[in-house]
């Protein structure tokens, strides 16, 4: 009896000491972004009983990798619906892993969209609609990823690529590229942003593009794109001739 009372007293003591410590450590780990938020219970259907239990049991990353591999198989079979749902599952399991968002959007905006566009069995109007739908899906995936990783340069770079190549919108492309550069992307992406700004029809954008490209020119960069766009901007901004960059003369 004495020992049973001791067991009870010990359990109370453990509870009193462990609860605040557990809460404090959980808060610390969440603050350091080492602990993910809880799993959305609505994912249970997609994961199945075993997958759900496994992902709760510390194997979340492994389950994400398995669903990623399954999506790869679906990609090889050109089964775009399955690719989308499996990549959605993967990104939900590990929302702070940028490569999953990047790849999910690439599958939709590039692979699926192009596959539909080149499918001659479909009518032209349907092909174009499916192309647009999948490009938009790719953009929405990146937008969702950017809610979890707002400053991630990889996602911003990919968003800029889509707005440049798949759904041309120079303003949004420039915004994404310059944002990527501001958050650690290589200097190449600042120039990409400037090249997109050149395509716009407002003076502010041209001035911004000119300032960027001129800075690179002054630091010695002579890339073909800079040499192509600087004269265009100088003409648009009516830069005095003596301040313009010398145009290379063609060899006779």
């Amino acid at each position: 009896m004495k020992h049973k009372l001791l067991v009870f007293a010990l359990l109370i003591a453990i509870c009193l000491s462990k609860l605040p410590l557990e809460n404090s450590l959980t808060a610390t780990l969440r603050r350091q972004k080492l602990l993910d938020t809880g799993l959305d219970l609505s994912m249970r259907e997609s994961l199945g009983q075993m997958g759900f239990a496994a992902s709760l049991g510390g194997l979340r990353s492994l389950i994400a990798s398995i669903s990623y591999l399954q999506s790869y198989t679906a990609f090889e079979n050109l089964d775009w619906g399955t690719v989308d749902s499996l990549m959605t599952l993967t990104t939900r399991l590990q929302p702070t892993e940028p490569t999953y968002w990047e790849e999910a959007s690439w599958h939709m905006a590039y692979n699926a969209a192009s596959n539909y566009l080149n499918n001659n069995e479909l009518r032209a109007a349907i092909r174009n609609k499916l192309f647009r739908d999948h490009v938009n899906r790719g953009i929405s995936i990146l937008d969702e990823g950017l809610r979890y990783l707002p400053d991630n340069p990889r996602l911003l770079m990919k968003l800029g690529d889509i707005y440049r190549d798949r759904k041309p919108d120079p303003k949004l492309a420039a915004e994404a590229y310059l944002n990527a550069y501001d958050h650690g992307a290589k200097s190449f992406y600042e120039r990409m942003g400037a090249y997109e700004l050149v395509k716009l029809n407002d003076r502010t954008s041209w001035e911004k593009a000119y300032a960027i490209l001129k800075r690179y020119y002054d630091s010695g960069a002579r890339y073909a794109s800079i040499m192509r766009d600087l004269p265009i901007l100088e003409a648009k901004l009516e830069i005095p001739v003596e301040k313009r960059v010398p145009v290379p003369t063609k060899a006779p």
Binding site: I14, C15, L19, E22, T26, L34, R60, S61, Q94, T96
Partner: peptide
């Protein structure tokens, strides 16, 4: 809550992997 340990406190592997 009293009896069970919080095993999630040791689940930092996901972050280690990335």
């Amino acid at each position: 809550v009293i009896i069970c340990p919080d095993l999630k406190l040791f689940d930092v592997v996901d972050k280690v992997i990335t």
